[in-house]
Design a protein around this nucleic acid. Structure first.
Lengths: 337, 337
DNA sequence: AAGAGAAATTCAAACGTTTCAATTTCGAAA
DNA sequence: TTTCGAAATTGAAACGTTTGAATTTCTCTT
């Protein structure tokens, strides 16, 4: 491997000169700088970011730890974050926790060892002592999409409670009065808040949400499909489904149709996130929409901004993005029997 | 930051002992090892992977460079690769090229500077001198999904030509004789091969594929939708659409339906990749299926295996995964007028 | 021709590890 | 007690940079 020393030897310069020249320091004579640069080019020199990071105490990498890379919602977040990170010379280290706080902890430790400069985190929000420890470090962390419950922490996302409210309100406006809630893990803060939003809307109509109306599961099409089939087999009386995300909602619609019922004629379904698939003709899912790519971008920007202003007492930042109801064909007025 | 030296001072040991102890070297007395480890724990020591990488000349990171993180096909590849990488102690650095060889080159340079140990690459296959240079390096590279045209290079993917053949053959078997091909960039090797597969199948029926039957575009729903609308407005005579991937195919179906026609009654559509959305009820896309997560896993395994066997003359490896036609409801027999 | 001042370059330490040869310590055999 | 070998520990260099202080080399002035 070609190093700075090799170039120095070749050019009969000290290696500090070479380093300075390569970094465009004007203390080095213009002509020498050029000589160094072209020699470096010629010899195929590539600077060693590790060595650089060691002495400069920053790696220009950030970690993005999230529950499920393949979930289109998170994939969009990554896309936005990667764009900004790359534009500012940073690389993204991606870690998939598969909704496990154990994996979340392992990944946190791993990226910290790697001396990444900051962390974007979609936490699965289970109690996690490692995360506590990390937050007490000097290392900047931005929570994305799902906020950190207690502590003051940087956050970019939406007002999930409000989103949940919007979703439930829409169904109520259509005349629905009996609901089931499908999917999700309740330890996730974003999900708890969505649920609270549902409850608030229903509360305005004096409708309680019983434990038995709620069917937890994974954030996947398969899980949504299985849940709704179980629900239908239980003869639960309901006219509308509140799904915690679009994948679940799509699964629910699959299940309903496979059971010989129609959406929305027999049952209305509303999702959450507005992933691309929600808009496909044939799916046409009513859902709560937000700009996921911007969310990723803003999160990365918030983190990187934090990295630039070193050692100043950083104050906590919060960015809450708009969201809105997108009405498609999966919801309709309740059928009066 | 707590370093090895701090522990050494605290315990009145040399820092080589501490290093050895921390790495579980048996030359250090059991008891000392334990003492060091618990002290490290107590002081909140985290080893510095940068420093380690510098001296060991390996970073235990691999780069994954690909065209579009948010495309579900690629997202699945990442998921599989991340799983294996993490399991073996490696981190994945993700880079999005947005189908631009310029970005591809920039990312290649960046990850090499970062001293990643190897590269997983879904190349956009445009001529790329930087890539040439990288391949001449000692650095292991595995091409994923889309092979490197000329050179002998590690590859994990499918036989795209065969896949293309299967797709076209299916439509021919259904009686279709007039086709349009929608989407994709032809510089991508995988796409060229799919196209060749189409041609071979049509060739068996003596049907030529004219330039005018082919509508290039992006790998996106939107692009597919726009293309088909243009095609329909041109009054092109055809009964079936060969789409280069599922997103395009879904867009095509959207466009067809929005134009008041039916799939497959009026026009049959076949995709490629079998992304999850293809199976959603309401989409039901006939497509060519392959195991994308396995593809990601195998690629990572191939790369990591290469990293372990250092300095042996590595021979080029190829893994070709099976693929199969999945018939759903987007294709049907041609309607005789 | 000397000296001042600026410009250009170099020195040397530092970043936090690993590693292997060298040294010290220890316990037991002679 | 001495000696020997094994066990345990240490020293020192190396990895490839950056950086501020120190030094050298110029270029003018006078």
């Amino acid at each position: 491997m070609v190093t700075i020393k090799d170039i120095a030897r070749e050019l009969d310069l000290s290696y500090s000169s070479v380093s300075l020249a390569l970094n465009g320091d004007t203390r080095i004579k213009e002509q020498t700088r050029e000589r160094v640069k072209s020699k470096a080019e010629e010899m195929g020199y590539r600077r060693n970011a590790q060595a650089r990071a060691l002495v400069m105490n920053k790696s220009e990498m950030v970690g993005f730890i999230l529950p499920d890379i393949a979930n289109p919602f998170f994939a969009s977040l990554i896309l936005g974050a990667e764009e900004i990170a790359f534009r500012r010379g940073y690389s993204l280290v991606i870690c998939n926790t598969n909704w496990s706080s154990k994996l979340e902890a392992m990944h946190l430790n791993l990226v910290i060892e790697r001396k990444i400069d900051g962390i974007l985190l979609v936490s699965c929000n289970e109690p996690n002592p490692t995360l506590e420890k990390v937050l007490s470090l000097e290392l900047p962390v931005v929570f994305v999409s799902s906020p950190y419950p207690d502590a003051e922490a940087n956050f970019v996302g939406t007002d999930s409670e409000h989103g949940g409210y919007l979703a439930a309100k829409h169904l109520l406006d259509l005349g629905h009065r009996k609901f089931v809630v499908v999917g999700g893990r309740f330890n996730s803060e974003a999900i708890s808040q969505r649920f609270k939003g549902y409850e608030r809307a229903l509360g305005e109509y004096g409708i309680p949400l019983e434990e038995s109306d709620v069917y937890p599961g994974d954030f996947s099409v398969e899980s949504g499909c299985n849940s709704i089939k179980r629900i239908l087999s239980e003869q639960h009386a309901f006219s509308a489904v509140l799904a915690f995300d679009d994948l679940i909602a799509i699964g629910v619609m699959n299940g309903i149709r496979e059971s010989g019922l129609r959406v929305p004629d027999d049952i209305s379904v509303i999702g959450f996130d507005n992933i691309e698939a929600a808009s496909f003709s044939g799916i046409d899912l009513t859902t709560i929409s937000m700009d996921k790519i911007s969310m990723g971008r803003l999160a990365a920007e918030m983190l990187l901004d934090d990295l630039y202003c070193t050692d100043k007492p950083r104050d906590r930042k919060r960015t809450v993005l708009d969201q809105e109801l997108v009405v498609r064909k999966s919801t309709g007025p309740v059928k009066r029997p």
